[in-house]
């Protein structure tokens, strides 16, 4: 609505109509959500096995009991996550840049980077964890750590870097060739053009999918529990083994969800900002 310009009766009447439609839509949405929630709740709680499921998975006392141990485990997940994210950013970017190098001299480097991406995008995360977590210590090499947390983090970095490398490569290729031409014509070297002109635009273009991969990584850090690291999932498992009650798992799941929600919202906000920028506002 433009300030200082009085609405004509026509516009006022139309605005009133739009408001009434909006009110109706909100009411419909509210009622349908409520009906759906009640129906779902009724379907689950009226199931014959519900009392048993409630006692096994949703026991408030057990949840409260297991919380400190699970939280302590989650702290390990968070530390692994931070290290893994930084590692993934560095390795992913390096692999992406290696894959974009042109010229026959770089063929072996390019081939190696491509083989790495093919391999680690294909291997299920669990198997990568087993191979690195159990295989590497079995080599009994001097100076190679055999801490399962360190090895688990390495396995996650190797797996996720393959995905993130492809995201970065897509970003690099999304920058129009005329940008490189402009940089080269000013006398910038290949490396300078990449670092100062191509990569800043590439990273900006792929920020939303990049954050999406981080949300995925955030929950997959829980998989290091299969190597025996006492993270949130392992802690929940220990609690479960003590009491034969699965509630600690639900506690761990809720904590992982809480952890991933902020990243998801940040990803949304970044995407929205990108859209605004592109539409020139």
């Amino acid at each position: 609505m433009i300030k200082d310009v009085p609405l004509s009766p026509l516009a006022a009447e139309r605005a009133a109509f739009r408001r009434s439609r909006a009110r109706r839509s909100t009411a419909v949405a509210f009622v349908s959500t409520l009906v759906f929630a009640v129906a779902l709740w009724w379907a689950v709680t009226s199931a014959p096995g519900w009392p048993r499921v409630q006692a096994t998975f949703f026991d408030p006392a057990r949840a409260w009991e297991s919380l400190p141990a699970v939280l302590e485990g989650l702290w390990l997940n968070i530390r692994v996550l931070v290290v893994a994210e930084l590692g993934v950013l560095v390795v992913g970017l390096v692999v992406a840049v290696l894959r974009t190098l042109r010229g026959p001299v770089f063929f072996p480097v390019r081939a190696l980077a491509t083989a790495y991406v093919d391999l680690f995008r294909g291997i299920p995360v669990l198997i990568a964890l087993y191979l690195i977590g159990y295989g590497v210590p079995a080599l009994r090499l001097q100076g190679v750590p055999n801490d399962v947390v360190v090895l688990g983090t390495c396995a996650l970095i190797l797996t996720y870097s393959a995905y993130v490398a492809e995201v970065f490569r897509a970003g690099i290729e999304s920058v129009h060739p005329s940008q490189r031409a402009a940089a080269r014509s000013l006398g910038l070297s290949h490396g300078q053009a990449l670092r100062l002109v191509i990569l800043p635009q590439a990273v900006r273009n792929v920020l939303p999918p990049l954050l999406n991969d981080f949300v995925a990584l955030q929950k997959d850090v829980g998989l290091i529990s299969v190597l025996g690291a006492v993270d949130a999932i392992r802690a929940a498992q220990i609690e479960q083994a003590r009491s034969f009650n699965f509630t600690p798992y639900v506690v761990a799941a809720l904590l992982f969800v809480l952890l991933s929600v902020p990243t998801g919202r940040i990803a949304d906000a970044v995407a929205a900002r990108g859209n605004r920028r592109r539409s020139g506002r």
Partner: peptide, 19 residues
């Protein structure tokens, strides 16, 4: 590269660095 340094081109589509 030395030659490119001593020339400059202005493109039809500007090609400014948007960032």
């Amino acid at each position: 590269v030395a030659a490119q340094k001593s020339m400059a081109i202005v493109f039809q589509a500007f090609n400014l660095f948007p960032h």
